[in-house]
Amino acid sequence: MHLKTCVHPKTRIHLKALALACATAALAAAGPAAASPDKPVIALSNAYFGNSWRHQMVEAFEAAAKKAKDEGRIADYIILNGDGTVAQQNSQIAELILKKVDAIAIDAASETAVNGIIEKACKAGIKVVSFDSVASAPCNYQLNFDFKGYKRDQADWVLNKIGGKGNVIVVRGVKGSAPDADMFAAQEAVLKNHPDVKVVATVYGQATASVAQSAVANVLPSLPQVDAVLAQGGSDDTGIAQAFDQYGGAYAKKMPVIEGGGSSNFIQWWAKRHEANGYSTISMNTTPGIGGAAFWLAYSLVKGATPPKMMIMPVATVTDENLKDYADLPAGVIVSPSYSQEWVEKNLIAAKTGN
């Protein structure tokens, strides 16, 4: 039976209500999924749909799933987007278990609070991959980024760029998520090694331009001159830059060193200032193309692959040296390659044996 897939692949704005309606419609319309390793049904449970990174990730999953379906390799796929709460994601995964899907890729609302329902899925014979915001259930496969490693390297670069002293704003990501906790911990560790750097404000940007802009704009009037901003990625970099642009004053002449998170809008902003006055920063970001990698990994698990239980994805890095290579990206996207089945087999599955 055909399963209705409900998603908004071109949307670039936060449509929480529509995403919730979409999830409900998909569950209501979908009939029982016949479990079949020959032609499996692969599902995506995405806990949060409120920023451009997550939209692009869902698009990557859907593109891979559509390719597999068109080629007759899967029976169907289901995409469910949530409101960021554990309760809703638990409910959605429970419905997917009842539908007897063959595999579920999960961008989790919590590292621990969805573990119980994941264990139920595993006991039901469903292959589970958590990715990006991973879950720690022992039975699931984790496809993650080295959030602590790359964020440590980026924070080090930025603080060295300002000479190891000055005032810094920290803009955190999606509240309650595992990536936010990991990246913030890495930033705190780097800050401890720079005693002459003072954190003058810490706000949440939700990896979203509008939220980050508002959060930074609200605190700027009460702060001394800011020399750098440590952020987390998504499109928060664009919102941070816009907040300083609109505030003006001394920032019209000397903009703080803002960590880039891979937003094409930020890279375009940076490129203009680099050409005009040599503005320099660094952008490092997790790649939303992981959605496609998660699909192919889930598919391979159903087909009998035995990858490592924990796998690490690469991040994308933009510097002054390669800035021109990315300056012409379309607006509203995050720097990311796409990941094919062949890439997954070579770089994730075969990594277990070193092949």
Rank of each mutant, 00 (worst) to 15 (best):
His14Met: 01
Val200Ser: 06
Gln246Cys: 07
Ala241Asp: 07
Ile349Val: 15
Cys22Met: 09
Arg273Pro: 03
Ser91Arg: 06
Ile117Leu: 02
Gly261Thr: 15
Ala64Asn: 05
Ser214His: 04
Ala19Asn: 13
Val7Ser: 12
Met284Leu: 06
Lys67Val: 00
Ile97Tyr: 01
Ser336Trp: 10
Asn277Pro: 08
Asp237Met: 09
Trp53Thr: 14
Lys39Phe: 04
Gly163Leu: 06
Gly166Leu: 07
Thr319Ile: 09
His14Pro: 00
Lys99His: 02
Thr5Pro: 05
Gly82Leu: 08
Glu71Gln: 12
Val114Ser: 00
Leu297Asn: 02
Ala298Pro: 00
Lys10Thr: 14
Gln206Met: 08
Tyr299Met: 01
Val114His: 04
Ala113Gly: 05
Ser130Gln: 07
Ser235Thr: 10
Glu59Asp: 10
Ala201Lys: 05
Met310Asn: 13
Thr202Ala: 06
Leu223Val: 10
Trp269Gly: 00
Asp320Arg: 09
Glu119Val: 03
Glu345His: 04
Phe184Pro: 00
Val229Thr: 07
Asp102Cys: 01
Ser300Arg: 04
Ala155Met: 05
Asn90Tyr: 14
Ser130Gly: 12
Ile79Gln: 09
His2Pro: 15
Ala33Leu: 05
Val158Thr: 11
Ala19Gln: 12
Glu321Trp: 04
Ala103Leu: 05
Met1Arg: 11
Lys16Asn: 09
Ser222Tyr: 12
Cys122Asn: 12
Trp269Phe: 07
Glu345Arg: 06
Met57Thr: 14
Ile282Val: 11
Gly163Met: 03
Pro221Lys: 14
Asn160Ile: 01
Met183Lys: 08
Ile267Ser: 11
Asp132His: 01
Ser280Phe: 02
Leu230Asp: 07
Ser340Cys: 08
Val41Pro: 00
Asn115Gln: 12
Leu191Met: 13
Asp328His: 08
Ile240Gly: 07
Ala316Glu: 12
Thr5Asn: 15
Thr208Gln: 13
Gly292Pro: 01
Pro221Gln: 14
Leu220Met: 14
Gln56Leu: 13
Asp107Thr: 08
Lys161Trp: 03
Gln246Trp: 04
Gly239Thr: 02
Lys16Tyr: 07
Val257Gln: 10
Gly72Trp: 07
Ala26Thr: 15
Gly233Glu: 08
Glu259Ala: 14
Trp296Val: 00
Gln225Met: 04
Ala35His: 13
Lys99Gly: 04
Ala155Trp: 01
Ala103Asn: 15
Ile118Gly: 01
Thr85Asn: 02
Asn277Trp: 12
Lys175Ile: 07
Lys10Pro: 00
Thr287Asn: 15
Gly163Pro: 03
Pro37Thr: 14
Gly176Arg: 04
Phe266Glu: 10
Gly354Phe: 08
Gly125Tyr: 06
Lys4His: 10
Ser110Thr: 01
Thr287Cys: 09
Phe131Lys: 01
Trp343Ile: 10
Ala26Phe: 00
Val168Leu: 05
Val226Asp: 15
Ala63Arg: 10
Met255Lys: 07
Met313Lys: 04
Val344Gly: 02
Gly31His: 11
Ala185His: 06
